[in-house]
Design a protein around this nucleic acid. Structure first.
Lengths: 233, 233
DNA sequence: GCGAACATGACGGATTCATGACAGCTGTCA
DNA sequence: TGACAGCTGTCATGAATCCGTCATGTTCGC
């Protein structure tokens, strides 16, 4: 539960004013965060899928899209914590921001210590949920070693590729729940992948060929027709 | 996935001013929450043990102990979401409140809509972790695993299709209440569906064939002539 | 007994998924 | 650098099965 020995938390700072970014970045780095920047909504979404941060700090006034829209777009594929950081203090904006999916809403001028405290409070709430994925998952005769990126059956290592492993690990982390193609796409391929969702089918097949004893009638990687796939013991 | 049919969320309102409690209670009940009250830290902790709420609203100025202390005491025994509600706007207090374990910190004078939005944002973040229990519905000898999209009887999996499953899950969520064809149409088929409502009959039949031991005289999926259908144990 | 409401069985179109093939890309190793 | 193997995403095809509709039979309430 404690943060000892943990790597610095990463933030994505989205604001169109270079000066504000600079000030905030310095203040936040001072607080021990690792800060990435984006100047508009488009860049933010790209950065998000390239390297998902622990928290997004989102300004409302952006050159391309407004922050509400960007927030909704983020939420469409990601659960990343979002804090709206803006000069607009009107209560309607606060409500709109939170309704758009933001977790918190703070107004400029900012006090760095307070922002940092709010980030910590949010991380405290979110971290346990992320940590819930245990390091070793056993499903039927499969042992999935997540940090080791290795899957064994009867002590024998199965030669999975990276994508195959990430896919299997996601399904294993969901404890038998059905995951839709879209969920799997955003988790395995990353948020913002726009290709055909049939790619999931293909990789499920490749996984089955390696993981299932009889790939023609899969026991573990089960199809939920019209819904997605799930992993069962 | 949706909250349809969910009971109201419960709040515990901790403030020593009866007048403020009254105003807040009315405003929050108006927003659809179920509100309990406590006038001091001692009562708050007792109420928390007796009947844990979904969210605690905690004033800083309390007659017995200050809010920071109460918050820390709450945290010692519970992960319940806490929002500090206070007149003290000083940034140091905000930081202290959040460091004491609060999830959010809002200052009076309050805008009910904003407070409500912040409560919703917090619940949105917390709910998925708590949701795990209500995911499994048992009706008679049927076990309906909603996230797993699976129904079992005597440990045996019933091969339901997507529509059949959604239909059964809706009926199961209503606990013996009669649901009209129109209600079922809008919940299972979605609001935009304009076809014949007899489609419900057909799927009820298909469900009976798979779910009922004697489909000719259904025990669970009961017809309410002229009204709709209901699921009974 | 009559009409309305529901049950039943059948059918064709539409979805959805499995499967195998293939070309582009990436990283590796000589 | 160039060859090469392995990984990835795309596509076409075919099979399975699901779904909405309809016609007809049955039951229920009055």
């Amino acid at each position: 539960m404690s943060d000892t020995g943990r790597v610095a938390h990463s933030l994505l700072l989205v604001d169109d004013e270079p000066r504000i970014r600079r000030v905030l970045r310095l203040a936040l780095e001072d607080e021990g965060y690792q800060v990435a920047e984006a100047a508009n909504g488009y860049d933010a979404l790209a950065a998000l899928r390239r390297e998902p941060p622990d928290v997004v700090l989102l300004d409302l006034m952006l050159p391309d899209r407004d922050g509400f829209t960007v927030c909704r777009e983020i939420r469409r594929a990601s659960d990343v914590p979002v804090i709206m950081v803006t000069a607009r203090t009107d209560s309607h904006d606060v409500v709109a921001g939170l309704e758009a999916g933001a977790d918190d809403y703070v107004t400029k001028p900012l006090v760095a210590k307070e922002l940092s405290a709010r980030i910590r409070a949010l991380l405290r709430r979110v971290e346990p949920a992320n940590a819930r994925q245990s390091d070793l998952v056993e499903v039927g005769d499969l042992r999935i070693d997540v940090p080791g990126a290795e899957v064994t059956r009867d002590g024998e290592v199965l030669p999975l590729t990276r994508t195959e492993f990430k896919l299997l690990a996601e399904l294993a982390g969901a404890e038998g729940k059905v995951l839709s193609r879209e969920q799997l796409l955003s988790k395995v391929w990353g948020y913002g992948y726009f290709g055909d969702s049939r790619i999931v089918d293909v990789h499920i097949r490749r996984l089955r060929l390696k993981v299932e004893r009889d790939p023609a009638s899969p026991k573990h990687l089960v199809t939920a027709r019209g819904l997605g796939y799930r992993l069962v013991s």
